[in-house]
């Protein structure tokens, strides 16, 4: 009788150890998920800042390219999925002392804001200072870029 009880308790301890290892593995994966989201945002920030679709040279956006991309319509987000992935957005705002005005085909270059793939959805983001080349009148300016992902 004692041996049966002993065996039973040994088995319980072994099973508890196995469950503990599995739980540990899953909780690690959960923490990993948040880290991956942050890494993705940082990658997007670097990637967009060096993307030939938007820049004049490394880390300097070209406002005419941004406006041209924007003027292709909301469908451009579907085209950008193969380049930048899913569920992301960027907002770029140039500092020129004026109120925020979204750039369109008709008001360029008297505008200072570009938004891509924005949705009314929960998200996490980061804000970074950026350089913006104003094609007309050919001068460099500064601004901020908010890059984020939807969760």
């Amino acid at each position: 009788m004692e041996y049966i009880l002993l065996t039973f308790f040994i088995l319980v301890v072994i099973l508890a150890l196995l469950f503990f290892l599995s739980w540990w593995q899953f909780s690690q994966l959960g923490m990993q998920e948040h880290k991956l989201k942050m890494e993705r945002i940082l990658f997007l920030a670097k990637y967009v800042s060096n993307s030939p679709y938007f820049i004049k040279e490394n880390s300097i956006f070209d406002d005419s390219k941004l406006t041209a991309a924007k003027s292709l319509g909301p469908g451009i987000c579907d085209d950008f999925e193969s380049v930048f992935g899913y569920d992301w957005f960027i907002k770029i705002r140039a500092f020129n002392g004026d109120t925020e005005t979204t750039c369109t085909w008709t008001n360029y270059p008297d505008c200072n804001s570009w938004k891509f793939c924005t949705k009314n959805q929960k998200n996490i983001s980061r804000i970074l200072p950026v350089n913006i080349y104003r094609k007309i009148p050919e001068e460099n300016g500064i601004g901020i870029m908010e890059v984020g992902i939807y969760i």
Binding site: Y53, S64, T67, V83, I136
Partner: peptide, 28 residues
């Protein structure tokens, strides 16, 4: 496949940009 997709997208954006810039130069 990747080359074709990205080239097409880049050409669309740049084509628009050329028209945008030239219309602005025309205006100014």
């Amino acid at each position: 496949e990747v080359w074709g997709e990205r080239l097409s997208l880049a050409a669309r954006i740049m084509s628009k940009r050329m028209l945008l810039v030239s219309s602005e130069y025309q205006f100014l």
